[in-house]
């Protein structure tokens, strides 16, 4: 449907109503979906896809950000493959994802199941668990760094009161990532709980009645009724949480700055450092493109896996 033809039709509309007008109406009907999605497409193109293409272009250059870019070819990509720090930051990201995604989803599910029954103060308790989600990541990081502070933080003060020793939460490489994971759980559990709660409520009661008649115990009810019916919610949460974990930035930036050593340096942290600390925008872009592809592949795998499990059901 060429734009020119539409223009003609439009032009002749006044002279020849009827046939042409109807053809125009059909054409217009075909255009409507494009008009409706146009605002989003324009915004995504301008502020997401064009920048992504530009980042891809820059990844073949040496660019200090304040000077002029110089062509480097694929050097940034060969460097990336050989850079042990890139692999370490990728490993850190995976460890972070593995330690936060399953745990926060499991806790979210437990909370949702507990809060799906009639309990005194149910609405209030639900709100409390959801509450941290509304706290900005900067504020979360700030308060977490404040509480985990080794010398005047409240957590160590409590440990000392209990007669235990202080723990170097943020300056011992063994403790930094767990501290970060705890702060993450605090934020994310509520979101997972709400989504699971919603999913639980859309399970028809009939299923449970049927299970009861069959004499299924609580555990087997969960295994054979609840969990399979929660699969779509689990799938949605898995994708969102994994993407979120791969993109975590503000919290790390505020809490540990990627240290001690490289123990909490995530890929995104390394990208940020290359771009703004060592002024290697080209290399930062190459890592960015690689990270994007990794997330894309991960999501595609999850997508396929869920499709297969659904068709198996």
């Amino acid at each position: 449907m060429g734009g020119l033809m539409d223009g003609d039709a439009n032009h002749g509309k006044a002279a020849l109503p009827g046939h042409r007008a109807r053809r125009w109406a059909v054409q217009r009907q075909k255009l409507i979906p494009y008009v409706f999605i146009a605002p989003n497409i324009v915004l995504f193109t301008t502020f997401s896809f064009l920048p992504l293409i530009y980042a891809f272009y820059i990844s073949f250059h040496d660019w200090s950000l304040i000077g002029d870019p110089e062509w480097l070819g694929i050097h940034n990509y060969t460097r990336l493959v050989r850079d042990p720090l890139f692999w370490q930051s990728l490993r850190n990201t995976l460890v972070y994802a593995l330690s936060t995604v399953p745990t926060s989803m499991a806790i979210g599910l437990l909370l949702a199941m507990a809060l799906n029954r009639r309990l005194p103060g149910r609405t209030f308790i639900r709100s409390v668990y959801f509450l941290p989600l509304v706290v900005s990541a900067v504020a979360t990081g700030t308060i977490a760094a404040w509480m985990f502070n080794e010398n005047y933080g409240v957590i160590n003060a409590a440990l000392v009161q209990l007669g235990l020793g202080r723990i170097s939460w943020l300056s011992n490489p063994a403790w930094a990532l767990p501290s970060l994971a705890v702060a993450t759980l605090w934020v994310r559990v509520g979101f997972n709980m709400v989504v699971y709660l919603a999913a639980l409520q859309s399970i028809p009661a009939v299923y449970y009645e049927a299970a009861k008649i069959d004499g299924a115990s609580g555990l087997s009810q969960f295994r054979h009724v609840t969990f399979p019916l929660l699969a779509p919610a689990t799938f949605l949460l898995l994708i969102l949480n994994v993407i979120h974990s791969f993109q975590v930035f503000d919290l790390v930036y505020v809490m540990t700055g990627g240290g001690p050593g490289f123990s909490t340096t995530m890929v995104v942290q390394y990208i940020f450092k290359s771009a703004f600390v060592t002024s290697e925008m080209g290399y930062a872009s190459a890592m960015g493109v690689a990270l994007y592809l990794i997330i894309l592949v991960f999501t595609a795998i999850q997508w396929r896996a869920s499709r297969q499990s659904e068709s198996a059901l």
Binding site: N151, Y152, S168, L170, G257, G261
Partner: peptide, 21 residues
């Protein structure tokens, strides 16, 4: 020295001096 006063930390050592740590 306090372990939190390495070069990458966000600790503010002047606080530790001010409160006698």
């Amino acid at each position: 020295v306090p372990p939190s006063t390495s070069v990458k930390s966000s600790e503010q050592p002047q606080n530790l001096f001010a409160n006698g740590t």
